[in-house]
């Protein structure tokens, strides 16, 4: 099965953008990545088993392309997220604190935390998407949470 691109884009563009931004920490790069993901979907011949399969594929390709983007020569050391933060309409200061804390984490923790807390994937599913061992994902999640707790203190719960 394949969802028409006209329906796919409105449904997933902000999700993919959030994932890509979490890795690139740069608006333009994140948007370029999302565009490339949709182009791969649109021009590719891959047949999917279900919408869940499509969603996982979109997220995996987004993560891979965003990582490539960050590693490329022109993007090394280019970080823009602090300035971008001022343009995001956060509801309250705690949200801004969380955003800042997440963006300050190492990339491997940002990716896992985002897939867990925003995309609602389980550890097992994240391991499958990222092609990593479950224990590695668990470890990233544990350490990432610990770093957020240390930074945000009581703003970040114990659940």
């Amino acid at each position: 099965m394949k969802i028409p691109i006209e329906k796919l884009i409105p449904k997933y563009e902000n999700h993919l953008y959030a994932v890509a931004f979490g890795i690139c920490r740069n608006r333009c790069d994140a948007e370029d990545v999302v565009q490339e993901v949709f182009l791969k979907y649109y021009t590719g011949e891959k047949d999917f088993e279900s919408e869940e399969h499509i969603r996982a594929w979109l997220l995996r390709v987004t993560v891979n392309l965003a990582r490539d983007k960050v590693k490329s020569f022109w993007n090394r050391n280019k970080v823009e997220w602090e300035g971008y933060m001022d343009s995001v309409p956060f509801e309250n200061p705690q949200d801004r604190d969380l955003f800042e804390a997440v963006m300050g984490l190492p990339e491997k923790y940002r990716i896992v935390l985002h897939l867990f807390y925003y995309e609602d994937y389980s550890v097992q599913e994240i391991a499958r998407i990222l092609k990593k061992k479950e224990n590695t994902v668990k470890s990233c999640l544990y350490r990432g949470r610990g770093l957020l707790k240390a930074r945000l203190k009581e703003e970040w719960g114990n659940d």
Binding site: N14, E31, Q35, F99
Partner: peptide, 23 residues
């Protein structure tokens, strides 16, 4: 919950590109 907190924060990230036309 932490999940609700995270959702509320990151749902504010919105892209404005016209991907359909570009793709």
């Amino acid at each position: 919950t932490n999940r609700d907190f995270y959702h509320r924060t990151f749902s504010k990230l919105q892209t404005s590109r016209d991907y359909l036309a570009e793709v």
